[in-house]
Structures are given as C-alpha cells and as structure tokens.
Design a protein around this nucleic acid. Structure first.
Lengths: 159, 159
DNA sequence: GGTGAAAGCACCGAGTT
DNA sequence: AACTCGGTGCTTTCACC
C-alpha cells in the first residue's frame, strides 16, 4: 500500500486518459513521441500495480431524473455498532458513499435520489437501521465538482 | 434537462460499460445478440443526448500517497457571499467537490490530501477565503464507496 | 524498457431491408 | 432502427535493440 513512483511519461498518459478513457493509444503515442506498444505496456503496468483501479462512465443523473443530492450525518447509540451500521448503510443503493468520521457525527454519507419525497424514504431507511440514534440531513442546493485533472496535476507536481 | 428514456438494450450497454469503458463493442454485441454497429450507434446517441457525459479513470489515491479524506463544513459571515466563496473554494485542487447546502453549514466540501499536516494547510486556505467565518472538519477514518452499478440498476428498475 | 512490424480484429460509415 | 459488409486503422504481441 506504499507510494508507487511514476515517471513523466506515465503522468502524461494518465493526463490524457483521465477524462477520456477511450482515446486511442496511437493518439497518446503520437503526442508523446513514443510507440503505441509502449503506451500499452505502461497502462498495463499501472493497472497491474493498482494505480489505475478501473475506468467508468460519467452519467448525467439529472437527465435520468435523479437530481437530488444530500449529505446525512448519522448518530449512533453506541460506537461499538459503527462497523455494523456502516455495512447496513452501504447496502442502500441510493447511498453513494459512506464514511466513519471524527467530529460531530459517527457516520457520514451522501445520498442521491429523485426528489425530496424519495430522499425522505432513503433517510427513513437510515433511521430504521438498528443502532442509529438519529440523523441530520444537509440538502445540496448546488454542486460544484472539481476536475480530476487538477488534483492529479497537483499530485504529480509534488512527486 | 428533462428525463430521457432508455430501453432495455441501452441499460444493458451501460451496465457493461459502467465499470469497464474499454470493453470492445463486439463483446457487448455478442452478449446482447445484436450487431456491433448497433452498439456503436446507441452509445453515440447516449453521448449526444448527454446521458453519457464522459468517461474517466479511477485512480488509487492511496497508492499515490494521498490517503487523507475529510469533509469540511463552512460557515459564512453573510449568505450573500455564498456564490463567491463557492468559486474560491472550487479553485483549490485538493477540494474534490463543494456544495451549497441547507442545514447547519452554508457550504460543504470534501478534501483529499496527503496527511493531517497537509489537510491543515488546505483547511487554512479555506479559512482564509474572504467571507468565511469558520469551518468545521470531519476526518474520514474509513470510506465505503458504493458500486455505481447498484445505483444504476435501481434507477433502471424504476423506469 | 523501448521499438517497429505484422496479424488480428475492432471501429464505424455506407448501403440495404 | 437494425443489419451486413468492407475499409481504415487500432491493439497487442514478439523478435530485436
């Protein structure tokens, strides 16, 4: 689980793939003045080493009718139940991510839903989990997603 | 921005692409008993309609030395500054996402960093933004990410 | 660890039903 | 709207550097 070191070529390959995974390796090769075979081998290595965990599509959930986002803080009766409750929470498909956290809440999660009505149902599911004392909801009114590329560049500049 | 309707074939195509964007269209075609050309046309349509916004790599940030995650709630002096502060926050590369929210906080964001030391720097950057009154940090001790496929299936079952 | 060529096959458009 | 077919060109491997 330690750091893995990548060279400048790897950085550039990731830079081109990060926001378009289907870009042809030949295009990458042309731009970096290396052969397509080399791109192939390097990507494979980054996959094998686990730096690249996978690839995925970015869908427009709003267009699918799921425009509601909220964060829910969860308070537990007893912190010994944390792991158990985290697992139950993670079984709800409308929960996109859940964290065990320090601070105010014991568990903290993000939910995505169709509407306030729908979100209410999801929050009730959370409240119904054994060990959950109460929840506190923050509804997202506007979301600003930061480009992955920027974080990646900051990381690379630091290596 | 209304709902767009997809049929069962589209669902299946997305199901195969969502966690492996480079899977050959011929493989998809074989599995769905349609021609590769049809897969191609349908994917293109979903891209044109905006349902598919793009594709991206999933990197292992832990392996890159960035294993620190925290959520930071931001309190403002004055809610009229919300938009301005959101923009300033979004300029920080270690902030991965920021929301304007109802409830306790005015703005709520997620940060990723190297260490507690590094996170401290990022939080100080937030505190230094004009209009920010104070912040409240929740450090993630454990993250549980939900498979995109599950949310997608729930959405499709509902259409 | 990189190259370059070659074989295989995928992509994607045109034409057909 | 989906299929077949064919040209173009991408991926992937391998012998060599």
């Amino acid at each position: 689980m330690g750091k893995i070191k990548l060279d400048e070529i790897d950085h550039q390959i990731l830079d081109m793939l990060i926001d378009n995974t289907r870009i042809p390796f030949t295009d990458i090769a042309k731009k970096l003045l290396i052969s397509a075979g080399t791109v192939h081998v390097r990507v494979k290595k980054m996959e094998e080493s686990g730096i690249i965990k996978g690839s995925s599509l970015t869908l427009d959930y709003k267009k699918l009718g799921y425009s509601f986002i909220a964060y829910v803080g969860v308070f537990l009766n007893n912190t010994s139940q944390t792991k158990f409750v985290l697992e139950r929470i993670s079984e709800i498909p409308f929960v996109t991510v859940a964290h065990i956290t320090t601070g105010k809440f014991n568990i903290f999660c993000k939910i995505r839903g169709k509407s306030t009505e729908h979100a209410k149902e999801v929050i009730f599911m959370l409240d119904d989990i054994e060990g959950v004392y109460r929840t506190e909801t923050m509804i997202s009114l506007e979301e600003s997603i930061n480009d992955k590329k920027r974080l990646m560049h900051s990381i690379f500049n630091d290596m």
